[in-house]
């Protein structure tokens, strides 16, 4: 027993499965993400009680109920705000926000971009299925032009938002994209997010079987995945295609695809640099999307900046060193006067 006290038994996937029945529709992409997360969490060697999963409203936001950690299923769009309070209160916690495209790119966009610009130490998993699922099928801020839904029977007439572009524009320090059926890649992204100091943002392309089935088939389908995705890898040229015969170069400010003979990539092919202090190139990559380009998968950006909670603690500690916490002195302030116990008869009265 002595040994187990010194080193508690390592956690397993089972430790992160709650006793709640998972209530997503059969075939939902969320199942794979949940399973992969439960499998990945034990690998972080963080005690289970230190994890907090916080969500808003939507299908994805039911996630916390199914993970046996601390969890908070909050209100629509507000998860990053609540997570900010949790992380400020206890920077020691590993805080995860689970959200969807409606939750954090419509009603909660303000909180999302401000969390990112503050670089608060939370991990944001945005399940993007390009549709409102829980309200039964309306257009979402990521739905593509022309998408027919219950609320847009003649097709959507709004330009979609690109989650990764939004995150980069908000000066996020870690931005990645992955998808629900690519489990190894998903795991790798989760791990990198967990290790990142500051806000980590992952867009997870996720299929909605009921209301938007096959929304990402043009990108993620195994049969053509190598042609329609571009796997980002730091320090490596941006090459894709089954034959590894295509690459991305920039002419003027405009990216374009160049084809070449396999193994003979021309030097103007862009080399990925996720650590570049300037987010411009990452932003340019975020604009590559189907159908004109392969959709980049992987880490767009991974840079270091002090976190909000660190700076908050530093200020408090610095002030504490110079001024004692004397409550009596605080409430007295600098301008006081004494009313004596026995007062002389009022003069001249």
């Amino acid at each position: 027993m002595a040994e187990t006290k010194a080193a508690p038994p390592a956690l397993t996937r089972k430790d992160f499965i709650s006793d709640q029945i998972v209530r997503w529709c059969p075939g939902c992409g969320d199942f794979a993400i949940l399973a992969q997360t439960q499998k990945f969490l034990p690998t972080l060697n963080i005690p289970r009680e230190k994890f907090v999963f916080i969500s808003g409203i939507g299908c994805a936001s039911r996630f916390p109920y199914y993970v046996d950690t601390y969890g908070f299923h909050s209100i629509h769009g507000r998860a990053p705000a609540i997570a900010t309070g949790v992380k400020c209160a206890n920077p020691d916690l590993s805080v995860w926000v689970v959200t969807g495209d409606g939750d954090s790119l419509s009603i909660g966009t303000n909180h999302l971009i401000h969390a990112l610009r503050r670089n608060i130490g939370i991990n944001i998993l945005l399940f993007n299925n390009e549709v409102y699922g829980l309200t039964k099928g309306q257009t979402s801020p990521t739905s593509r032009m022309g998408t027919k839904t219950k609320s847009t029977p003649y097709g959507s007439i709004q330009e979609p938002m690109i989650p990764v572009s939004i995150a980069l524009a908000a000066e996020a320090t870690f931005v990645a994209r992955t998808f629900d059926t690519n489990l190894d890649h998903l795991s790798e992204m989760l791990l990198r997010a967990a290790r990142h100091k500051g806000t980590a943002f992952i867009e997870i392309l996720q299929n909605c079987k009921v209301f938007n089935d096959g929304a990402f088939a043009d990108i993620t389908e195994r049969s053509h995945r190598e042609e329609t995705t571009l796997t980002l890898s730091h320090g490596k040229p941006l090459i894709f295609g089954k034959e590894k015969n295509k690459g991305i170069r920039v002419r003027g400010y405009v990216p374009e695809i160049v084809e070449f003979e396999p193994g003979r990539a021309p030097p103007e092919i862009l080399v990925h640099d996720e650590r570049h202090p300037d987010s411009s190139l990452a932003y340019l990559l975020s604009k590559l999307y189907t159908p004109k380009f392969p959709a980049p998968i992987g880490v767009f950006r991974d840079v270091e900046r002090p976190t909000y909670e660190e700076l908050m603690s530093q200020q408090i500690e610095a002030v504490k060193k110079t001024r004692p916490a004397d409550l009596q002195a605080l409430i007295a302030g600098s301008e006081t006067w004494q009313v004596p116990a026995q007062r002389d008869a009022e003069e001249g009265a």
Binding site: P80, A81, I82, G85, V86, C88, A89
Partner: peptide, 14 residues
């Protein structure tokens, strides 16, 4: 909304 949200989060954490 973020102001009250963060206060609720901080309260959740004690």
């Amino acid at each position: 909304i973020a102001a009250v949200g963060a206060a609720i989060g901080a309260s959740f954490a004690g």
